[in-house]
Computed example of a mutant assay.
Amino acid sequence: MTITQLYYVLAVAEHQNFTKAAEKCFVTQPTLSMQIQKLEDQLDIQIFDRSKKPIELTEVGKKIVSQAKNIVNEADRIKDIVDQQKGFIGGEFRLGIIPTVMPTLLPMFLKTFIKRYPKVKLKIEELTTDEIIQRINDGHLDAAIAATPLENESVKERPLYYEPFVSYIPKEHRLASKKKIDTTDLEIEDMLLLEDGHCFRDGVINLCKSFKQQDDDNFQLESGSIETLVKLSNEGLGMTLLPYLNTLDIKESEKSNLHHFNDPVPAREVSIIYHKSELKMQIIEALHTVISGIIRGAIAFQNVNIISPLAK
């Protein structure tokens, strides 16, 4: 039994196809198939049911894949230990970022990080929180930046910053005359929301204490982007809430529509999250240092109330 064989087994289990798995492993399909067959012969079991389309794991195959993930992780840890001993910070690093953080945070830290750590090859993807958790657990992401706490035992969280919510209220809105607002002023019925699947949406809903399930025929407007929410609000279709960093680039003509909250200011916790196996910690530490150092100059809020990103 070899580590390479286990890599091949995990690839077939993920893609449910020998040809696709071979492409991902950069080997020929006959080579991959032969190595998996060799492993099955050695163990005297069938890992895959090849009669099914797509290919499925057998019952014992499911147990083998679960153990193979642990073994492959531990094998990767050996290289990780060597890199840390040598003080090497480099290699490929796969980073996921949620959509409501990516546009504001990435331009702030990416150039500095690349300049400081030129040997790190960042591969960045914009993903929802659910996709991030799945990919971290599957070993397809090394870390991610997301709103926390997530209450997930498979990942560890390390806070980067606390980002306040800011209300965006059009001129004719019932709250437009208030310089600062309270969370008790919010009503979900006139709130423009992001589409389902965005954790910032869930945070807004959790913040609105008056939230109640609405009938399908009630008016409720949702959008896939924060920029669209601002435009819809300008049309008088309701108010919305924005993450603080999104307000820094808002048009001068729209700044009068921004209304901050009274203390304690509702805020989201933004963290770097990673698998509990703690691989590539030297790069995770480098990312944390760069991002938290840069963000400290942009956000200086103290008295905040952390709003959960979890759907209730």
Rank of each mutant, 00 (worst) to 15 (best):
M1D: 09
Y7D: 11
Y7I: 03
V9G: 01
L10A: 01
Q16M: 02
K20T: 07
A21I: 07
A21P: 03
E23D: 10
F26A: 13
V27C: 08
T28H: 10
L32I: 01
L32P: 02
Q37C: 07
Q37G: 14
Q42L: 13
Q42M: 12
I45P: 06
F48H: 01
V60T: 13
V60E: 15
G61V: 00
K62R: 09
K63L: 12
K63S: 12
K63P: 00
I64F: 14
S66V: 07
N73C: 02
D76I: 00
R77H: 13
I78F: 12
D80N: 13
D83A: 11
Q84S: 14
G87D: 07
F88K: 11
F88I: 08
G91A: 04
F93T: 06
F93D: 08
G96Q: 09
I98T: 15
T104P: 04
T104L: 09
L105Q: 09
L106D: 06
L106R: 11
L110C: 02
L110Y: 14
R116T: 14
R116H: 08
Y117E: 06
K119Q: 14
K123P: 00
E131R: 14
I132T: 05
I132D: 05
Q134I: 11
Q134M: 08
N137Q: 14
D138F: 09
D142I: 06
D142P: 06
D142N: 14
A146R: 01
E151K: 12
N152S: 05
N152R: 09
N152Y: 08
N152M: 05
E153I: 10
E157Q: 11
E157I: 07
E157N: 04
R158M: 08
L160V: 04
Y161R: 02
V166T: 11
S167D: 04
S167T: 05
K171G: 00
K171S: 09
L175N: 01
S177K: 15
K180D: 05
D182W: 10
T183G: 04
L186C: 09
E187T: 12
I188Q: 07
L192T: 03
L192F: 08
D196E: 15
G197C: 05
R201S: 11
D202E: 14
D202I: 01
I205N: 03
K212W: 02
Q214F: 10
D215K: 14
D217E: 12
L221Y: 08
E222V: 14
S223F: 11
S225D: 13
L232N: 08
L232T: 04
N234A: 09
E235M: 15
G238W: 06
L242N: 12
Y244L: 13
Y244M: 07
L248W: 03
L248M: 13
K251Q: 15
E252I: 13
E252H: 06
S253Q: 13
S256H: 13
L258V: 10
F261K: 08
F261Q: 05
D263A: 15
D263C: 13
I272N: 03
I273H: 10
H275M: 04
K276D: 08
Q282T: 12
I284L: 02
A286K: 06
A286V: 05
A286D: 09
L287W: 12
V290Q: 04
G293C: 05
I295F: 06
R296C: 07
A300L: 12
F301G: 01
I306A: 06
I306S: 06
S308E: 06
S308K: 04
P309I: 05
